[in-house]
Design a protein around this nucleic acid. Sequence first.
DNA 1: TCAAAAGTGTTTAACTTACACCCATGT
DNA 2: ACATGGGTGTAAGTTAAACACTTTTGA
Lengths: 243, 243
Amino acid sequence: MGRVQRFSGMAVTVDVVVLTIRDDELQVLLVERGVEPFRGRLALPGGFIRAEEDAEPAARRELAEETALGGESLYLEQLRTFAAPHRDPRGRVVTVAYLAIAPDLPVPVGGTDARAARWQPVWSVLSRDVELAFDHAGIVEHGVDRARSKLEYTTLATAFCPEVFTMTELRRVYEVVWGVSIDARNFHRKVTNADDFLEPTGERRVLETGRPAALYRRGPARTLFPPMLRTAFPPVLPSDPDS
Amino acid sequence: MGRVQRFSGMAVTVDVVVLTIRDDELQVLLVERGVEPFRGRLALPGGFIRAEEDAEPAARRELAEETALGGESLYLEQLRTFAAPHRDPRGRVVTVAYLAIAPDLPVPVGGTDARAARWQPVWSVLSRDVELAFDHAGIVEHGVDRARSKLEYTTLATAFCPEVFTMTELRRVYEVVWGVSIDARNFHRKVTNADDFLEPTGERRVLETGRPAALYRRGPARTLFPPMLRTAFPPVLPSDPDS
DNA sequence: TCAAAAGTGTTTAACTTACACCCATGT
DNA sequence: ACATGGGTGTAAGTTAAACACTTTTGA
């Protein structure tokens, strides 16, 4: 019984689509490549899986190394594997893509590694205004699609929020990720009625103006029932400053 | 710039969870392993991805080779990648798992290959009454979960049906996969109201008894709106013959 | 004429939507 | 006082569940 590698030795990497909401926009975390191929081009954080390492720990390790983003609190799920034969010019590289969701961070994430990590609005990637290395633009598309559809049936939206958050912050997640406008009053009722979605902390947050907002924490539920269907909300049209 | 393989040469395989409904049970297609390790044990159909081959074509090829199941009509989607370091005793093998859905076939599928392919009720695998090779039991669990949840929001149910089918056949898919009982009359209205889910063929099928049933074909819709929520249906309790 | 399966209509309850209205804070 | 955002109440419209009832076949 010989070693397995003689059948089909391939390099296996992980790549992570980290999404967050910054400046009322859905943004993705990218790193500038320091080596060929695609040196200087933006790419998803990621790298090779080690010999004794499972894929998810590899994704967390690469994220921590390249972007100083981490902790068990970071939401991470497997997205899809990309295995097209020539997706990497160096040879046969199969990548296991992950989706991570992070709250808006107080400071811009900086890599401990030499490479600079930066947030980029997803529209600039999806429109191909910003060209990514390899097939990473397609991977970002998959990640955004996944996040958009998971908001409907799961409690994923809370992963975009810090540990405690207001109803409005949660609502903005849906509005920004879907590009829709949602009635704040009905939204409030809907999510407070959904079992175990949110836990009231009892605290309130006082803003510059207006009534203080109650603060909530994620509840134990992972699925959202009843679901929040996208189809129920009107899309926000891009505003025309000349009209 | 050296060859990529020196970073992390791993074997990459595909494994396919093929589900169908036979004898009013959800069943999975398994093959008996002809070689070590796990010789004689049941396993998912699958095998190594070739050097110039993408993952999905590899899944279709292995399925055709081992189970004589194929055609572009077969529903196939990527499920998840399993990459635990010691999931295969031969060494480092990463597998990309696929989910396929097949209609109940007129004849039992036989492999053109020497290995015998057979259908096995999924409960026997999920309960571990039947022990599979490698981590394949866990992969089957993932496949069944995926199929169950996709019935809710997509038109996947039609993939379990032949090209033309009756309303009752479609309803049985939901009942068997979810283990619930569904009111035939409300189901009929619900699916006929959903846009592009079904196309009436105009034909009718006469059974042994009862009114002839209208025949339908899959419509172009891939998502189901409004969704068919599992929570709306009462579970079927296992019947007790002594009561 | 009966049994069995297909399909329609109707009642009632639940939920959603839109929006009037009240609340609590800073200025 | 008033502007601003937070939150509740409610009426109208929509959808879905339960089930009575009709249709169409074979025996």
